[in-house]
Design a protein around this nucleic acid. Structure first.
Length: 572
RNA sequence: GCGAGUGUAGUGUAGCGGUUAUCACCCCACGUUGCCAACGUGGGAACCCGGGUUCAAAUCCCGGCACUCGCACCA
């Protein structure tokens, strides 16, 4: 079976069986948008459920949910409005499109900060020709915003907004509530799953680059001065790491997460811990461990907010694809939101082990002199004195007020004193470690890695070996024939299975038994229960295991209890 | 966004100016069948969208949309 067509056959299967399909197909389809069909939606739901369980079980992580519509100022503060507004120049001769600032690379100190007209002028002044055809017929530079703009409010007065390009900002907005929820004690984290939107120029590769996609992000807030000491010993197998190609460890390494942290390749212990937890999650949902690797961003490709960034890449039909990004965003976001919004709630409190007594020299203003001397400015002078950190050794001296004016402060105006203050702690801006998961890309690789084309009695046979946790159905119930009461018994069992919490069963009565096994194998149902003639007499059924197609006979009651406890495997 | 190629039932395809639009899988009903895509009979389902050329268009031309590949883009 030819390997280059495997991608096509897998895509056909996904469409045929209602897993992944193009959106709005009867209207011609829209590039970059996909539907999860009846089977795919179930897989997606379960992948997300596993993800939420995985992170909330860390303990100090809670789930939140915030809007996808985001007011512009939030995204100005986060840097997305600038970062997503690259100007593009189009060659009028050959139609090629380039980033305007890339054309000016090396000719202008900071081309990224220029307006469209400035860019056009610079390109004209520098006589830059089209790298593609050598022509000189540039059309005007125009901004290409990768966010979907919208307005909040009807008619003209609406506020400018964008569909969120990531879920993270919503969690930063909730920081004050989280800080209260966790009783003002770091570290803690918030997770959120949901849609994010990026108006990609040309989405390609099926569900790898989408315009509307499913993200799952954790923002984990830490005190940068407290380095945790996570126990990485339980991850004892080696993983593939590709450190910064411009750094001292360039090249591919195979080592444990503990070794990666110990050697300094991974800089922060929390980052190392999250790399390990990410690996666990991916393996749990059925990604092939041999096709996972972690790649560190070079400092030149780092996102605008990150100080250390690792991509978790998965290998499949589209090559190595970034599926998870784990970034140390430091205090960038909270600090920027603090500056833009003026809020003082975006900080943590660091309690000292024991209160510190600090003695400091202060100059206490002498109102009787300052008042008459400075009149209206007197209170500004008093304020400036109280904020003085370095008290001058000698008087008089020149004091700079908040509005920038300088005044002379003489001996009579102040009293020099030594003050003792007891400080119990200090405010700081927490740092954020963010694992961001592209759910669609992960689902793609689960499907890719689970899809196997085998032979059965000389004919091609397809199995999707999904883990039970992410399979669309836990079990399919099949009467051997839909007659003699076998169909009725199967329906009874099916309705009992359906009432079991967290268990999904499917009933299939049409066509031959072999065909129904094949249909179930093709969408990854791990177990099949068959009701046959013996079932009518002694209350037993057969249980078939998808992965090796073996069957055992079991009592219905015992089978159902194994099903609810997730231990069907013990029957074999 | 540019260039090239490709769009036919749910899937894979044949047809390349005039066919009742081919074949297979598929799906449904009935029959048959004592466990792995069995069989019989009957049935269902398609020319991407819009314009043009022509007596006649799935077929030729133009535009749009989508997919694949290359270039560019991918915070």
């Amino acid at each position: 079976m030819s390997n280059e067509r495997r991608l096509g056959r897998l895509t056909s299967l996904l469409r045929r069986r209602g897993i992944i399909l193009p959106s709005y197909e009867i209207y011609g389809g829209v590039s970059g948008l996909i539907d999860y069909g009846p089977v795919g939606a179930r897989i997606k739901r379960r992948v997300i459920d596993v993800w939420i369980d995985h992170w909330t079980s860390v303990g100090n992580v809670v789930e939140v949910d915030s809007p996808t519509i985001t007011p512009e100022p939030v995204l100005v503060a986060s840097g997305h409005v600038d970062e997503f507004n690259d100007h593009m120049s189009e060659c009028g001769a050959c139609g090629a499109v380039f980033r305007s600032d890339h054309l000016l690379e090396g000719l202008n100190p900071n081309p990224n900060s220029l307006e469209a007209s400035d860019l056009d002028d610079k390109i004209a002044d520098s006589a830059i020709t089209c790298p593609s055809c050598g022509g000189f017929e540039w059309k005007g530079a125009s901004p290409m915003n990768l966010m979907f703009p919208t307005r909040i409010g009807a008619k003209r007065g609406g506020r400018m907004a964008y569909m969120r390009p990531e879920t993270a900002q919503g969690m930063f907005m909730l920081y004050p509530a989280l800080f209260r929820h966790f009783r003002q004690r770091l570290p803690f984290g918030a997770i959120q799953t949901g849609k994010a939107y990026r108006n990609e120029i040309s989405p390609r590769q099926g569900m790898i680059r989408l315009r509307e996609f499913n993200m799952a992000e954790l923002e984990y807030f830490i005190d940068p001065d407290e380095l945790p000491n996570p126990d990485l010993g339980r991850w004892d197998s080696s993983v593939s790491l590709l450190p910064d190609p411009e750094g001292p460890h360039a090249g591919e390494h195979s080592m444990t997460f503990g070794e990666a942290l110990g050697s300094g390749i991974v800089k922060h212990p929390t980052v190392a811990w999250f790399l390990a937890l990410t690996w666990d999650f991916l393996v749990d949902v059925g990604v092939d461990p041999e096709r996972i690797r972690f790649r560190q961003h070079a400092s030149t490709e780092m996102a605008h907010y990150a100080s250390d960034c690792w991509d978790c890449e998965l290998n499949g039909e589209h090559g190595w694809v970034e599926a998870v990004g784990i970034a140390n965003r430091t205090c960038h976001d909270l600090l920027s939101h603090q500056e833009h919004s003026g809020s003082k709630l975006l900080r943590g409190w660091r309690q000292f082990d024991s209160p510190r007594t600090e003695t400091m020299e202060v100059l206490t203003p002498n109102g009787a002199v300052i008042g008459p001397t400075f009149k209206g400015d007197a209170s500004a002078v008093a304020d400036a004195l109280s904020e003085l950190t370095d008290v001058p050794d000698s008087l008089p001296f020149i004091l700079t007020l908040a509005d920038g004016t300088n005044v002379e402060v003489t001996e009579e105006m102040v009293t020099r004193r030594v003050e003792k203050v007891t400080v119990h702690g200090e405010y700081f801006t927490p740092h954020v470690i963010e694992p961001a998961f592209g759910i669609d890309r992960i689902i793609w690789h689960i499907l890719d890695h689970s899809y196997s084309e085998t032979e059965k009695e000389g004919k091609g046979y397809t199995i999707l070996s999904l883990k039970q946790d992410v399979a669309p159905f836990d079990v399919v119930i099949l009467p051997l024939f839909d007659k003699d009461g076998m169909g009725e018994l199967a329906r009874q069992i099916s309705s009992r299975v359906s009432s079991m919490p967290g268990i999904h069963g499917d009933l299939d009565v049409s066509r031959s038994i072999g065909r129904r096994y094949a249909r179930a194998d093709e969408i990854g149902v791990p177990w099949a229960i068959t009701v046959d003639h013996a079932s009518l007499e002694d209350g037993t059924v057969t249980v078939r295991r998808r992965d090796d197609q073996t069957q055992v006979r079991a009592e219905v009651e015992s089978l159902l209890s194994h099903l609810s406890s997730g231990t069907i495997g013990e029957l074999f």
